[in-house]
Amino acid sequence: MSPVAAENFARALQGESVAVIGPGDERMVLPMGEWLRDADEQDREFLAHCVGPTIDVGCGPGRMTAALAEAGHVTLGVDAVSEAVATTLRRGGVALHRDLHDTLPGEGRWGTALLVDGNIGIGGDPVGLLRRMRTLLAPGGRVVVEVEAPGVASESVSLQLDCDGEFSEPFPWSFVGADGIEEIGAEAGLGLTALHAHGTRWCAVLEVPA
């Protein structure tokens, strides 16, 4: 994440209104209230698919990291925004301020890598992101990933964050639909073992061959 994008995300965590600008200049205010709240029933249904030690990639303000810890998992949140990590720590989670491509603790030994709240889009290269997740996982480990609903096309786009007229540099992002996750996972060497609807949200479970 670029410095200005990270700063704008941090300002959103501090209560300022930050909009994400997509193709065609579409604008959507970042849903910080959804990310700052405690885990709800749908979140816990996602977390029920996590097995063993779990790394929450792009943990944001840490609602899922904290909920995993409360459920008894050995859990680590990772985020490129220092304010997000600080928020996770304040709510009782364990987290690191680090880029996901940096060396991370326990590489090759995690049971689950968690990608929710659209984090399959990080970097605009879902195949490359899932390949990175594979390097974190033990044999037989899994990626629990939130995807778009069936019928939504998978695509890569360029986004910006706008906070009070201060625009970040454009950065790549991807959206992955339920219909496309099996093929994308296969390209990364992961097999789709389950696809679930949890309320209005969709969850795919991808596993590393044992």
Rank of each mutant, 00 (worst) to 15 (best):
L192S: 03
A66Q: 07
A138E: 01
S82P: 13
L76R: 02
H101I: 12
G128P: 11
G121E: 12
P53Q: 02
V94A: 07
L190E: 05
R131P: 01
A149E: 10
G22D: 08
G58I: 11
F171M: 11
L161A: 07
L192R: 02
S82E: 14
G58E: 05
R44N: 14
L130V: 13
E183G: 07
F46E: 12
A5M: 09
I122M: 15
R109E: 08
H196A: 12
E16F: 12
G111Q: 04
V205N: 09
V205D: 05
I120D: 13
D125K: 10
L47T: 06
G92K: 03
G108E: 03
L114E: 00
G123T: 14
E183R: 04
L96V: 07
G52K: 00
A69F: 06
D79A: 08
E16N: 10
A149F: 08
F9K: 07
L129W: 15
T88N: 08
L89P: 04
L192N: 04
C163S: 02
L161R: 03
R37L: 10
V78N: 02
D43N: 09
L159M: 10
R11W: 09
V20P: 01
V144C: 06
G118H: 15
G189P: 04
T87C: 12
D40E: 00
T200Q: 11
L36V: 05
L13F: 08
L195R: 02
S156T: 03
N119M: 14
G24S: 11
I184C: 03
I55V: 06
T112Y: 03
P139R: 09
L47E: 05
C163F: 01
P61L: 09
G33M: 11
L96H: 01
V78R: 03
R27M: 07
V29P: 12
L114A: 09
C203G: 15
A10G: 14
S82Y: 10
E45N: 11
L195G: 04
D56N: 02
P170L: 04
E16I: 10
L104S: 08
A67V: 00
A19I: 11
P209E: 08
P170Y: 06
G108S: 02
F175V: 06
A210R: 05
L36Y: 00
E187W: 05
E187C: 05
A5P: 09
F167G: 01
D162W: 11
V157F: 10
V152D: 06
L36M: 07
V176F: 01
V116G: 00
G77T: 02
H101S: 14
D179G: 14
D117M: 14
H49P: 03
D102L: 11
R63T: 12
A113N: 02
R37K: 15
L36F: 03
L136S: 03
L115H: 05
G58D: 05
T65A: 13
L114S: 05
C203M: 15
F175P: 00
E83N: 11
S154R: 03
